[in-house]
Nucleic acid binder design. Structure first.
Lengths: 351, 351
DNA sequence: CAAAAATATGGAAGGGCTTCCATAAAAGAG
DNA sequence: CTCTTTTATGGAAGCCCTTCCATATTTTTG
């Protein structure tokens, strides 16, 4: 039979309320009693039963993370930050992976109703006004990471500035025929990155060439469209299109995610072209993969974003935060590796 | 106020027991009543409250996954299989990441006592006899994935055979100076892979050269030692040592994990050597990264391993399984990409 | 030293569900 | 149409906690 609070109370010769107060570190317990009860707890190896605590407190000490799992590594690093922050606060993490669109709403519905969790972390996904309202009305704390909704807390990255800096860097490297491989323009990051890209061109008096701008929206292959086009295949396909232009192809390409860049690099290699000599690349995200590939990329501080999201969410859960909508914007940082050509240029200068 | 089973019962004009039975798909409910109650449930948008269910049923419908998180991608793919299998059975996944050793035992203790979960999946970790007994005694189902304990269910990979095949492949490619970069020999996979490697050499009348065998155990840099040496840095360091041998270096190297291979490839490139021309590599694991790097590797069917682990665990949880200890051995499969030199050789032949 | 205030403790009620036992309704048998 | 069996339903008790209210104990104050 399980050891309950009653067993502890009886053995310690106190009431169950007292035991409960000891467990919950209530200040209004005499040191003597506390010590006695703590002794018995250890002796019986008692541990409170979370389900019962949850029922009584109406609190689960658990947070849901909804992650578009299939996409890969980006979330892994975020998750790491999240996990560490949560365990510091003694919260558990329930992981929901979403692949299909309707599954997302399913999970929203469940988290709102079942009350299995005290709060929700939503990664890289959109949320309809409808559900946003539901979360607000039901007072279920939610934070979007790498996603945006006007009435919800969100932690995002300066996408526009990132794209701007990436393009600017390529321009500084001497490229004037600039390409862009983007995700689905239906997604906000894709739209904003396009804007940043265009701004950089404009600021440098470069007229964008429509041919050099690829976005996944024109395609209807579901594999290419998955995850809003932020996938390997889309990168492969996009780069093929650019290379098909022959001499007209761009010489420097900004690719809106590392994962797309991985695919893009593959085609470039397959066609016998050299990176960065023939085509220079700067991408976006800064996942670990970029390091292995030698990708020059705009790095997002993912670990920090995950950790901050947790800190903030817990504040809301524990009502230690005002009720305003919290928005935090992180800045991406240009990490120069091999694909942008900066190192190569530097070597030449030094020679 | 929350919608409870009482609200539904009242509105439907039935008793709470009836509502409960409808929810739990009890057969002994007349179709008429079922329909009526189901209607009200939808109308009130009622959903049972998991904490209360958990308390009453003494069941949580949740499984804990204990993962050595920091290491990386290997677990990501396993997790994917796990997650999908779990959600099919309507179980939730609580993720515990372990970095420090004592944290592991902490989590064991908690899962055993708090009863927050119905079962545990332990990835790539050892478990002491002591804790193994505790799990058995407390009847808490647990399955080890990529780990072994005699009295617990486990799902593992044929490490010896995998290493054997990898080495054999290199030998077939014409290499006779074979190197090995291994993890910490304190870990079982590292020991077994060493054995497989040696067996392959013996079977082909090659005397192993001590100099060509690197294992992390001789080092005391904590970074290199982390995760039993299955990390990038260890690979980098190990390969440096082999390359330091100059003309004496091995021409073909079996590296016991993809992640180490990534580090190893980096040094090889830095030193201006070519893969596979100067050094051929076959590694182990088959994580997604290996694809990007063009690594020839022994692929573990990770998704399947994760999924099977779940299926099995749930059977145990739901008592649908006999009580024997379940052991399943998966077979790794050689995936030929660029680093082993097989493709290159093939091209030469075709020319 | 008594009265008032502050502090510590006991335990009933309540949280939302499942389940068992008792009872009511329906079906079958004679 | 009545009696027995089967099937369907109602609701109390129990799962293990927290919390509030009532009471007991200690400390402070005049």
């Amino acid at each position: 039979m399980r050891v309950t609070i009653y067993d502890v109370a009886k053995k310690a010769g106190v009431g169950i309320g007292t035991v409960s107060r000891v467990i919950n570190k209530s200040p209004q317990i005499s040191p003597k009693t506390r010590k006695k009860v703590l002794g018995i707890i250890k002796e019986l190896n008692y541990q409170p039963y979370v389900m019962a605590q949850g029922l009584a407190r109406k609190k689960t000490n658990t947070v849901a993370c909804i992650v578009p799992f299939f996409t890969g590594y980006f979330y892994f690093e975020l998750l790491n930050g999240v996990q560490q922050a949560l365990s510091k606060h003694n919260y558990d993490l329930i992981l929901y992976s979403v692949d299909l669109f309707d599954k997302k709403e399913d999970i929203f519905e469940r988290t709102l109703q079942e009350r299995r969790v005290d709060g929700v972390l939503l990664f890289s996904m959109t949320i309809s006004d409808d559900y946003a309202d539901k979360f607000v009305n039901k007072k279920m704390p939610i934070a979007l990471v790498d996603g945006y909704h006007k009435s919800l807390d969100s932690i995002t990255i300066e996408n526009k500035k990132g794209a701007y800096l990436a393009a600017e860097h390529l321009i500084k490297m001497g490229h004037s025929k600039l390409g862009l491989i983007n995700g689905n323009l239906g997604s906000i990051p894709a739209r904003i990155r396009l804007k940043g890209f265009n701004d950089a061109l404009a600021a440098n008096d470069i007229t964008p060439d429509e041919q050099h701008i690829f976005n996944v929206s024109s395609i209807d292959d579901p594999q290419i469209l998955s995850n809003d086009g932020f996938n390997k295949l889309a990168g492969y396909y996009g780069m093929s299109k650019l290379l098909d232009l022959g001499e007209n192809r761009p010489t420097g390409v900004f690719i809106s995610s590392d994962i797309q860049a991985a695919g893009a690099m593959k085609v470039v290699n397959e066609r016998g072209l050299k990176i960065p000599e023939d085509i220079a690349i700067v991408s976006f995200d800064g996942i670990e993969l970029s390091e292995y590939l030698g990708l020059s990329t705009m790095k997002q501080p993912m670990f920090e974003m995950g950790a901050l999201a947790v800190e903030h969410l817990i504040k809301k859960i524990e009502k230690r935060s005002n009720n305003g909508v919290f928005k935090k914007l992180f800045h991406p940082e240009l990490v120069i590796r091999d694909t942008c050509g900066a190192k190569l240029q530097m070597e030449k200068i030094l020679d």
